[in-house]
Design a binder for these strands. Sequence first.
RNA 1: GGGCGAGUAGCUCAGGGGGAGAGCAUCCGGCUUACAUCCGGAAGGCCAGAGGUUCGAAUCCUCUCUCGCCCACCA
Length: 817
Amino acid sequence: NNTLQDVVIRFKRMDGYEACWFPGTDHAGIATQTVVEMELLKEGKTRKELGREAFLARVWQWKERYGNEILEQLKALGCSCDWSRTRFTLDPGLSRAVRTAFVRLYQEGLIYRGEYMINWCPRCETALSDLEVEHEEVQGNLYFVRYPLEEGGYVTVATTRPETMLGDTALAVNPNDERYRHLIGKVAILPVLGRRLPIVAAEEVDPEFGTGVLKVTPAHDPVDFQIGQRLGLPAVNVLNGEGTVNENGGPFAGLDRFKAREAMVERLKTEGLLEKIVPYKHAVGHCQRCQTMVEPRLSTQWFVRTKPLAEPAIQAVKDGKIRFIPERWTKVYFDWLENIRDWCISRQLWWGHRIPAWFGPDGEIIVAMDEEEAKRIARERYGKDVELRQDEDVLDTWFSSALWPFSVMGWPDSTEDLRTFYPTDLLITGFDILFFWVARMVMMGLHFLGEVPFREVLITPLIVDERGQKMSKTRGNVIDPMELIESHGADALRFTMVHISGKGRSARFSRSLLDESRDFLNKIWNMARFILTNTADLPADADLSGRKLPWEDRWILSRLQTVIGEVREYLERYAFHLAAESLYHFIWDELCDWYLELSKVRLYGEDLEARRTAQLVLRKTLLDVLHLLHPFLPFITEEIAGYLGVDVSRGVYPKPEEDLRDPEAEEVLSAFRELVREVRAMRAELGLDPGCELALGISEGGRASLLTGELGGALSRLARVHTPRETDQRKAVRAARGVARDTSFFLYLPEDVDWNALRSRLERNMAKVESELASLEARLNNTEFRAKAPEEVVAQAAAQARELQARRARLLRFLEE
RNA sequence: GGGCGAGUAGCUCAGGGGGAGAGCAUCCGGCUUACAUCCGGAAGGCCAGAGGUUCGAAUCCUCUCUCGCCCACCA
């Protein structure tokens, strides 16, 4: 994520934009508090023993020690953030933004307090939002329990949580269910507690499930709560905060919820009320932070009314004001916002923004920016100074994160930063926080600023380990980036991240990829070393203009322009991995494997001017390549450019120079390389001494004179051949014949060789040519292809066919001979 | 229950309407004065399966299978 952000920031900065990256961290309420609580536990203390103030002091201590680690990691990774703008969600400025947002939303009726069904984590002892609950398939049981009827007989009810029976206040059946219609209005008796339960009608009941009779527990189930609300049923809470049964649980009071379940089952068995137990797999909610099973529970909490905020957030994306990349995430975003439910924002924690609400002596709520303002309001309301008690709870961390795009810029003040940088251009993040963060930033940004917080959202894949598993501390497969930076370097880590960033939803990380990246860096380093040492004597005023460039220079410069164009295009569409790949192959396969070798002819030659030309092209290419690479590999590029007295980070990102494009040179070098490759292959397959120099003759082909003439020196160096006059050829024992493109050649051999190997090579070439030719000719003979395919495609196929035919003819002749 | 992603060489993956690609691994040969973290050469694939669209499909559409993930108040 951060590598990609830095690639974009550096690229845009080099391309002339005022690219500002606001770094910062959030306070991670539950996670941080949990960690510190664990620390305390080891010392045998609890947070409650310490008290709020001392505990918070302790958390701040922890934060000072570890909270900046992530920023240190970013720095080590080379992220070019504006560090002077570093922010933390609990900073005074951001806290003021949080209070301001809370107060305004409350005044607008978009924040309310009330008793509703929420998710409760008995370990964290706090309410959670729906998003903080992860549903996991669990193997449980469906218990079929008989509820005696007041009038005699019984009905059977199926439940997965028998312990919640203690909170039953009714039974419900579907009004259209013929089987039970006669029971509506009758009364059942709750086992164990003997409570009278009215049998009611409710559409929510699915006749197909279980027995078609639902036990209604309004305090511990969302659907039951809804039924209870509508029908005015009492809600009996049977659980304490830590997950034990409370005083409403009769004989089970004090038992842990799971012990209570067992006890209830035993009790029902002995009373003959348990009809059967059926194994049942179902999804159960778990706390995102501690994996504890959450309990739906009726509780008084603070909520954000989300529908009015969600609608503009949907519209903004529909209007194209925000674009998701890849686009498919748009649908996911819509689905969530369209079905959004109110957001429970209060947490029974201490680490976080304390809710700016005070209670008067009569329990009335006063929401204010601070205690002073609350007191002022209270004075007006009560006509005198009264005792005020601030709400103990803090806000969901994501509430403050939702304000991030403008709180970091000084909101609610109208600041220069806000005017300059809001809305921002780009957010890069993972899909795991699309709802938690992205959607909420859009809602809050639109609400408070009237404008989207960012125009583009780039969703990156999530990194998984070698086995495709999500990285998590509980799995123990997390990797400290600092360790990787130490072993392979930040640039290698960055390059690897870019390499795997083009994936679908997950990107598999493995250390062998780091080796690959390191090898590439090593290649770059050695390439630079070669160029720097071989151009050390280049006069400062030497200039490329006016020089006649040989084919290989024209070729590499032309290829360079193509690569510049490609890299730019890929960066513009955030296809980082393709940009990196393009550079990787250009540098390794073309620049290093071919051009550097070709340049040696002149670098090590006698002709000073030719040497100067080669040096200038090498320098120019190196500089362009360093600039192209810099957003990906800031460290190595700065180091190398430093030797040339260039600050690459402040350089301009290369643009293609059209006048350097040279299709003819590319064609010539392509033929040249093909010839060299063919000679090398022949040499290898004939088992010839790799060091021995062979005589080569070119018999046919449009570029024969060029390949042995202007490119003769290069050919001789790269293919280890010389091109003697006709007369010298007699010295050879025999000649091996080969074909490369439209060129056929003779390799004069100093000794007898394995002619079968040569024949087999020619035959393999022949087979390849024939099969290609067959498919080409089939296409060309197809009248529909000729009629409907684009002209250039047909022309290209025809040209290819001609070349293959020529090649086939020559191969055939050689085989006969 | 709804949705998404992935299935291409032994492995990890890129590509995404007109010649099947890379890295690693394998085989053969090289310490050639930038680099053995290297160089040269070779072998290896009905691009998951079945239909369809098209002159042309690994690529687009439909369905199926396998794996992974997200969302969801069937107790």
